[in-house]
Design a protein around this nucleic acid. Sequence first.
DNA 1: GGGACATAAGTTTTT
DNA 2: CTTATGTCCC
Length: 762
Amino acid sequence: MEEHTISNHKDYLSTLNEPQRAAVLHGEGPLMIIAGAGSGKTRVLTYRIAHLIENGVDPFRILSLTFTNKASGEMRHRIEAAVGTEARNIWMGTFHSVFAKILRIEARYLGYTSDFSIYDTDDSKSLLRSIIKEFNLDDKTYKANVVFNRISGAKNRLISADDYINNPVIQADDDAAKMKEIGRLYKTYATRCFQANAMDFDDLLFNTNILFRDFPDVLYKYQHKFKHVMVDEFQDTNVSQYLITRKLSAVHRNIVVVGDDAQSIYAFRGANIENILNFEKDFPDVKTIKLEQNYRSTSNIVNAANSVIARNKAQLEKTTFTQNEEGALIDVIKAGSDNEEGRLVATAIFEEKMQKALRNENFAILYRTNAQSRSFEEALRKLGIKYRIIGGQSFYQRKEIKDLLAYLRFTVNQRDEEAFKRIINLPKRGIGDTTVAKIAVAASENNLPIWEVVANIGQYASGRTIAPIEQFATLIKSFKIQVEEGKDAYKISAHIAKTSGILRELYEDKTVEGLSRYENVQELLNGIKEFVDSEANEDKTLSAFLQSVSLLTNADEPDDNNDHDRVTMMTIHSAKGLEFRNVFIVGLEEDLFPSQMMLENRQDLEEERRLFYVAITRAEKKLSFSYAESRYQWGRIKMCEPSRFLLEVDNRFLNVSKMVQNALERDTTPPVTSFARNLIQRKPSEPARAVSPQSAHTPSTDFVPSDTFDLAEGDKVEHLKFGFGEVVKMDVNGTDRKATVKFNLVGEKTLLLSFAKLRILK
DNA sequence: GGGACATAAGTTTTT
DNA sequence: CTTATGTCCC
């Protein structure tokens, strides 16, 4: 990564190109920066903020919103290098962290206390599961996952539970999906969160909107406070986030948004490219600056990336180019299996490292799904190459960590239902599910928070469960006293870890896993100590620590400072904003990347393509693609075919060996897949037509995907790879149905395949 | 209430 | 293959 230390501020302007300088020096009024990959956008943002501060703008009055904690940390660091410690006072962070901070300050307006808990996705789903159970709904039709996504989607569009229930379109939708109770679930879920003094991730934005909508004087305060508002990764903001920033900048109108529509990869989470178009409508006097020159990558890499994105229809007008050298061609590596893919990539890293005298940290392996990391780990370990994995199961998602955090959460906020459920019987105190359910019933019957029942259990229950619950209540009360005495987060946490018995239980577990769990808890305690010792944190209370920790993501793992010369492995999503000298994009197989799920559920090939674009543009000097012909998955060998994305990259930029060339060009043997996506029902009137492998990927209008049809035995169908077939058997099970189809292959062979999950047409 | 065992279900990306 | 849930029995 380039060094951007600014020693003399006159110098830095001279290092910028024309549009970059214009963006840094832009005065008042709205500005939109469309910044291609590698065009120095972080640099521009950094210099702009430094420039504002040098020209007398109070750092307290600058709000800078980024997408990850890492990005904001790095930007703050760079600005500090330019303008000194003043940079600490900038309001900078992710949307979620900045607005969590504001919500804590203003919590009372919404009926929360400033100690509110933040529910992570697991908490939310667990709460939903309980509610679904309480409603006596079938948990096969009402899956917590699906319900959660519906609620989350609604919140991101600022639809409250009441709006949801009263909206006929949404209700018709839910009816059609046979889940008409979602509105009621949403309502109860929201109530329960509120009663628990808890907000989920979406609430942090949703409630900020409510706060600014219903309390004009609060809005007034922040509108006037923030003289300058900056939004990074604007293409990934959702409606809820956009409305907040729009409101905040309505007074001073100094809003700068930076984005690249080609790098929008979070539509699945509600990100909305239309924000870019709305921005021009809402701020008609907006000035637009395009940063189109790529400084990061060789021209082969930039051109390859452009050739991929050029296939997308939805995009803004922009031409990215580079004046960098042509550089090496893109290597295409073909492997027979996932394990071989691991070995070949590891070997390639080893050789390149030796030949060019590179370091481990120059390399990154990027994949579509976290589960792919295994084969690379094994191969790298065998060659003695150090690596680090970003993502996967995050440190903060481990059971033992969440357990201790639940204790801390409950100590701070006794209404936190999810934390309560986690710790009431941990370590084992002989309080089982039935007792917990009884407490919950007593609480709701008397309309009391759970803690009130627990603390006065004698009034609500009798028998042998009373004693352990009273002990538990005493324990929590003793923790609470420490908080009230004003002890810092570390002292309290260490005390809780010891007295609760969590540490002891783990200590007594002498298995390998037990040992590592014990170490993890110690590491968390060390982390808390660091938090308390750090000068940057003024507020050292437990509550403040919990706030900071609940919004950490897997990209913010505690980093080993002395040991960062490692190959980095991560998903492409986590790689956004990063750059590496050598990049390997692996697992380029159909249905893996592009993801089968993405195509089936959202039919959004373009977002997958943008993801590929993001991956390619991470590379500075050297890029390699790899794919495997077979993959071990769920205990089976799955046959794979090369991703269409491989074929979409302009051949001029690829370095394809003869062997791989042949493999890419030959008719691939039909892999045994069972996805209905490939099954096409022929309209009766259409004449038969041969299907070529090329056209197989883009069904013409003559064909309709079978999952919109109700197949029956005897129906003639066509499969994109296997050709014509006949439905010989239908199995119906609720809304799911499975078709068994007989195909006649060339050479009079027959093939029987089952296609699951065909949706019934109403 | 809790341990041992059996069965079923889920597998995209993340603030 | 992993993980969560269900069932049996003490």
